[in-house]
Write a protein that binds this DNA or RNA. Structure first.
Lengths: 153, 153
DNA sequence: CGTGAAAACACTAATGC
DNA sequence: GCATTAGTGTTTTCACG
């Protein structure tokens, strides 16, 4: 599909680390001219390789540092059930990620809340209130050992 | 710790959605002046609420669209084993996230690789090559239903 | 929190290597 | 594909009201 040379890879690494440098700064780091870097960035954006630029928030500072990974089984696996569950889960703001997985469970979701009480509220009034939920199994993150948004190309 | 008013919350939402608008654009959206928004952003950065700004890359476009969630148990839970495992796992570039969790398993990691063959290589030569790994159980993501970096304040 | 002004930067374009 | 230069318009940044 797309091919990336060494400079592209380094540039993507830098942009995934911090996207607020000036073009000049990336250029200096990469031993290139600003125009060369500028054009590479624009190309990567145009190709859709760079999806978007976002701010990352410190979860502790906004009182959402309680992270829970939750395994979910649906009562049945009909198309209708799957479609509705996936549509519903998108609307839950506490759910940062949701994967449909193979294996013993159907879904794994990652939830950010304030504390255990908050999680209890989330479970009772939001998650298990969804249709078609069979069972859930929560795993509480004792520690975030690594939490990166980087993809190494 | 920190308190946020409605404008802070809206601003954090916008910045977590797209951090490349001009201050003017956020100001217009929030019905404020550019300086007011400018100072709020600077304050949020200084307080560490905004950790950093990063580019998000389309995993499909860089051939890392095969996502695996893997449960890991260590052979023992001594301090030494835990510390070393956590130090080692940080170095694995394929591992985007790693949580130390309560429950049946010790760790859950999220891995991005190209395909099943790549994952096999990762398992054999990197993951299970780590010391103290007891058992692993891989769950392949059939679908990424939701994958957000946003924390709703 | 707003106004206004200077400095810094993004962006475009043209030339030549 | 990259360096360099030059030029315009926008944006950031900050002292001051």
């Amino acid at each position: 599909m797309d091919k990336f040379d060494t400079i592209d890879k380094k540039l993507l690494f830098l942009l995934q680390s911090d996207c607020k440098w000036t073009t000049k700064a990336y250029a200096k780091k990469l031993n290139l001219s600003t125009t060369a870097v500028y054009e590479r960035i624009k190309r990567l954006e145009k190709q859709g390789v760079i999806e978007k630029y976002v701010a990352l928030v410190d979860k502790k500072k906004v009182a959402k540092a309680f992270t829970v990974l939750c395994h979910i089984k649906l009562v049945r696996h009909s198309r209708e059930y799957v479609v509705q569950f996936e549509r519903d889960v998108l609307k839950l703001e506490e759910v940062a990620e949701c994967y449909h997985v193979s294996g013993d469970y159907d879904y794994i979701i990652k939830v950010h809340v304030r504390d255990m009480d908050d999680y209890r509220d989330f479970m009772i009034s939001k998650l298990t209130a969804l249709d078609h939920i069979g069972s859930t199994q929560s795993m509480f993150a004792i520690k975030e050992v690594k939490c990166s948004t980087k993809v190494v190309v």
